[in-house]
Amino acid sequence: MRVNFTVNGRPQEADDVWEGESLLYVLRERLGLPGSKNACEQGECGSCTVRLDGVPVCACLVAAGQVEGRDVVTVEGLAQFARQRAAGGCATGACGTPLDEARRWQAEGTGPGTGEDAGLSPVQQAFIDAGAVQCGFCTPGLLVASDELLERNPNPSDADIREALSGNLCRCTGYEKIMDAVRLAAARRSEEV
């Protein structure tokens, strides 16, 4: 089958998709966007977390056909997504923005996944600065989930952070530096305001 949907602000068309393929497979193997990770492919680890019409989901649990006509944001588009949001307020359905408005968000740059001249989003920068990245396999999913948390709750308590990120497994860090990174991103944002 053919699937048409929007990824990181760009219309995408995937051809010859087998009905059993997941959104994760289409992103990684058909669209050249391997940033969303395949740590468990059973919806337990959160490494494939993407925004589907603004809602964080495990891309491995979404059938490719289900995304027809919908809007997906992956880690590759997170920086531009965050910039767009900063410029025009919340750009997703998750915080009350209507879907058609959410779709006005468009990627800049040369193409999905290039990251060229795309400065990092605040949460990406905070993960690097706080030492929250080791092997990095959990990082894309945690970034998408953390970004969504801070969008909805700019000043989360530690318990809020733990609750929001409890669907994202990390095996390297013991989570302390991930807590630091989210706190840092929140603090930097409140300084800016």
């Binding site: 590759e76 990251g115 993960f127 690097i128 600065d129 030492g131 990245v133 990082t139 894309p140 970034l143």
Partner: peptide, 23 residues
């Protein structure tokens, strides 16, 4: 010194090529 990882930017942008990402 606590210098930052040289692979950090690639890992937070999703561009770091893990062995399962190869094509």
């Amino acid at each position: 010194e606590s210098t930052l990882r040289p692979d950090g930017i690639l890992k937070v942008t999703g561009e770091f090529a893990y062995s399962s990402d190869l094509w």
